[in-house]
């Protein structure tokens, strides 16, 4: 039983335990019944027939290797290629924006970085991709990279802004008092600590970037989802389910792995002594705070401080 749930109900006594056991059995039985019903429906629709053979013995004279090359090498490869190009661009330019906002002394510099951040995180990624494709006439790959990089640049800038804001004030004051300029204070003292406390959020944001690379399907980039569609069109509609199943499993497996990595790093950081602490001894970023800031950066304006999911 998790700690958050136990707030809402007492540790069960003998009577409640007996009742919970009944509930457990009833609901488990209900879920199993639902599952069997759905499986039966699927069976009726022929979901479990020989169509799955497309994965090891495809029709139309193709080899299993052809199918898997299309899915893994061309499909997943293209998805990861767009991610691997866009992620560093987004991280570096987002970092520059955040540093400009915190460290610049010129009003114009600060405001331009604020405006860029606020505009680009309020626009749909797909719109940015179409802008690059139809407006600038870029290739599908670079349109996808443009959309992913520009949107996530704004989000990364906002995540780092939240991280910089969460640092104890003394850090900045110390930097300024030994005669560093505001920019140097930001770069040498604050940014490394902000990146450290926001690392879980930055990693989770890579999951968002990877998820959004599937929008390439719409702008004509031949990534994983498009390969699934192409194979389906080639082999016939009957083979949709196995092909989709493999594609979805790849996406979800990668994303869950990276999300877990972020949670693991957060847990490790929580136990470490090398994270910035406030004067009262609390961690500068409370538990789940980095994730909340990332959520806000993706979705809202000025809702910093709310414990979001």
């Amino acid at each position: 039983m998790s700690a958050e749930a136990s707030v809402l109900y007492d540790a069960p006594g003998p009577k409640a335990k007996a009742r919970d056991r009944v509930y457990n059995i009833v609901f488990t039985a209900a879920f199993v019944a639902l599952f069997i019903f759905l499986a039966w429906q699927f069976y009726d629709n022929g979901v479990f027939d020989d169509r799955w053979a497309v994965l090891w013995d495809p029709p139309k004279g193709q080899e299993a290797a052809d199918v898997w090359t299309a899915l893994v090498v061309r499909g997943l490869g293209a998805t990861l290629l767009a991610t691997v190009i866009a992620a560093p661009i987004a991280l570096i330019s987002g970092g520059l924006l955040a540093v400009a906002r915190r460290g610049m002394t010129k009003r114009a510099g600060i405001w331009s970085s604020v405006i860029v951040t606020e505009i680009f995180r309020g626009l749909p990624v797909l719109l940015l991709m179409f802008l690059a494709k139809l407006g600038f006439g870029w290739s599908p790959l670079w349109s996808v990279v443009f959309g992913l990089a520009v949107y996530n640049m704004a989000v990364v800038a906002e995540i780092l802004r939240a991280g910089l804001a969460a640092l104890p004030k003394g850090q900045r004051e110390a930097g300024l008092s030994i005669g560093l300029s505001p920019m140097r204070t930001t770069l040498m003292i604050e940014l490394p600590q902000a990146v450290r406390i926001m690392l879980p959020a930055l990693i989770s944001q890579i999951v968002v970037l990877l998820k959004d690379s599937s929008l390439g399907y719409i702008v004509g980039y031949q990534e994983l989802l498009r390969q699934v569609k192409l194979l389906r069109d080639y082999f016939g509609v009957d083979y949709t389910i196995p092909l989709f199943f493999v594609g979805a499993a790849m996406y979800i497996a990668i994303n869950i792995t990276v999300s877990r990595l972020a949670i693991w790093i957060e847990g490790r950081m929580r136990r470490s002594n090398h994270v910035p602490k406030r004067p009262d001894g609390e961690d500068a970023m409370h538990e789940g705070g980095a994730e909340a800031a990332r959520f806000t950066a993706n979705t809202g304006y000025g809702t910093g401080g709310t414990p979001g999911p």
Binding site: V207, S214, L215, Y251
Partner: peptide, 13 residues
């Protein structure tokens, strides 16, 4: 952990 495009793809195709 599912891309939204994948979700659309599921319901449409």
């Amino acid at each position: 952990n599912t891309p939204l495009t994948l979700m659309f793809f599921f319901w449409v195709f």
